[in-house]
């Protein structure tokens, strides 16, 4: 076997494409030919160096969570049909300052991956603490009945990540469940004033409380069922 053939066969050897006889012959040549042996070792060292360098890529933190969220979004493009309708009608209205809250395309109804089982943790204080751990200093809407808190997460809202609390009321007199999303907006990011709007499919209520604006969108006839019973 000549040296040129050997150089070619080395490539096949790396590919694992040599049979026993070919491998034997190759090894025999390498044992006898210092040049080819050195070449082979040199190739091997280069392979090792490349194999070491190639995967050295830092993976951004939170990537897995973001992938999972993307998958959830892809699974449920329209998780709440009535809310999608609401978003569309909001666009249609487009009145004054209210444009601030034009949520149509930006509203993100995906369930964020860090939703926790709030059945064991449903107090305003606990929710505030969990949001604080995520970097959101918020004041939870204390007038709401936190026993009805179904989930919470941070979502995209008008170009910002904002906390969102979802309250679920299972059945009123009509025996229909209703849902209230409360977006907790900081007054340093958004301007707004108390506001109320009612359509056939949903209600909007904006409540300004100190440094926070609660942008509430819900179905059902009244917000009353979601609120803490007056003592």
């Amino acid at each position: 076997m000549d040296c040129t053939t050997v150089r070619t066969l080395l490539g096949f050897a790396r590919a694992g494409e040599l049979d026993d006889a070919e491998r034997g012959a190759l090894q025999q040549h390498l044992d006898a030919c210092a040049d080819c042996a050195a070449h082979s070792q040199s190739e091997q060292r280069f392979d090792d160096a490349l194999a070491a360098a190639m995967p050295r890529v830092p993976v951004p933190s939170g990537l897995k969570t973001r992938v999972l969220i993307a998958l959830t979004q892809a699974r449920r493009p329209r998780p709440w049909p009535w809310l999608a309708a609401a978003a569309a009608s909001l666009l249609a209205v487009g009145l004054g300052w209210y444009l601030w809250f034009r949520p149509a395309a930006e509203l993100d109804y995906a369930q964020a991956a860090w939703e926790v089982d709030v059945k064991t943790a449903a107090t305003p204080e606990k929710v505030e603490e969990l949001f604080r751990e995520r970097g959101f200093a918020i004041q939870a809407p204390r007038e709401f009945n936190f026993e009805l808190l179904d989930s919470f997460d941070d979502v995209e809202f008008q170009g910002r990540r904002v906390p969102r609390l979802t309250f679920l009321f299972r059945g009123d007199r009509d025996n229909r469940a209703s849902l209230a999303h409360v977006y907790v907006l900081s007054t340093s990011h958004f301007q707004g004033q108390d506001y109320r709007e009612s359509t056939a499919t949903h209600q909007i209520e904006v409540r300004v409380r100190g440094d926070f604006i609660y942008f509430i969108i819900y179905n059902g006839s009244s917000l009353e069922p979601f609120l803490r019973p007056a003592v």
């Binding site: 190639m54 995967p55 890529v57 993976v59 951004p60 990537l63 992938v67 993307a70 998958l71 892809a74």
Partner: peptide, 28 residues
């Protein structure tokens, strides 16, 4: 596989933001 896929995407595209987009899109 997300980490391996991201690294592959990064080596392919050479940019972190693009690599992340590619990773998300691939999983979707």
């Amino acid at each position: 596989h997300y980490a391996a896929l991201y690294r592959f995407a990064f080596r392919l595209s050479g940019a972190a933001s693009e690599a992340e987009d590619l990773t998300q899109e691939a999983f979707c």
